[in-house]
Design a protein around this nucleic acid. Sequence first.
DNA 1: AACTAGAGCAACCGCCAGAGG
DNA 2: ACCTCTGGCGGTTGCTCTAGT
Length: 366
Amino acid sequence: MGRPPCCDKSNVKRGLWTAAEDAKLLACVSKHGVGNWTVVPKKAGLNRCGKSCRLRWTNYLRPDLKHDTFTPEEEEHIINLHKAIGSRWSLIAKQLPGRTDNDVKNYWNTKLKKKLSKIGIDPVTHKPISQILSDYGNITSLPKHIGNHFGPSFNKLNMSTTFVPVSDPSSGITGLAYTNMMMMNPIMESQDYSSTSTLPFGFLSQFQAMNQDDNVSLPPHFSNEVTSSCSSSSSPPATDLLSPQCHASAQVVTPSSSPFNWSEFLLHDPFSSADQPKQEEVFQGLLASPANPTVGNGIQSQAFEVGSSSVINGGPSLNNNKNLANDQIASSSSSSLSSFVDTILGQDSEMRAALFPELLDGCFDY
DNA sequence: AACTAGAGCAACCGCCAGAGG
DNA sequence: ACCTCTGGCGGTTGCTCTAGT
């Protein structure tokens, strides 16, 4: 049979750790090191599960941990990494010396998500909210039968309280703010970078090269899109992601001139399973890429330790890769911006009028 | 001063892949 | 070969603190 269980789970202490327990665990780890956590409680004289000891050590007692607040640089780095790889907290934390995945996760959930929401950026997709609504319109034949077509996930939203017009005095931006986008349809998890700017790891050039090599096809929706004016194939300065200029332009909705069918696009996935070795190759290349100007303060020198399977199989990475390519294409199509923007603004106004007529009196300055 | 709601955070839960017996 | 455990991870819960009324 298998190994014996590490502890009697019904008989171990749970809940907050006391200073005495911390001291015992510290003494034990400093004496024996971190190895087999199942024996740590016994050696330390703790009535705790080994798993609990490991967590306590990893998230709190480790001597290299920082316990102060996150710096603006760290904050920006988290946002960039989340945009690139999604909620892979352990990977993100590895790029932030002294921070744990739990720290980063908590900081994201309590601060950064709200911060992005407040300025009209969807913290899940990093897209402007208006663009998400536009995408929904394309999917669901909005605005004819809004309630019926959003599906069960979207219906969870309390639209009357979730979407509100806001005006951010610090940035001068107005638009729709919302909360709880996590509850929306999972399709939103397919991330789109076409309207935001800061991409770590030098993703863009590599994906551009890949797309040229493989003729990776993208839906016309994306090739028609115009990105924010602060987009760049090289990563902009740290503050750009949240800069007023970025937000103002990010508010520009970018629908295609012809209706785009998300269902068709999702079925036609250039990164289908057959391409997984390619994805792995590319992603590993990206992780090793020295061109990562957004990572400062010595962070970029750290190796990005990532198991290939965990990155490639499922999760947001597939969509990330795909949409990073979209970003590149979109970035290169910024000519005739003004007329396009006019068209966009017209369509966006129509959409809002249909969706939120009560908000028309609010200010929406683009 | 007492109560309430929300924010922040530590810890737990449950799942998964890999490894041990 | 099979079963079970470990270690790691992301998601969630619940406790504590604080600000507002």
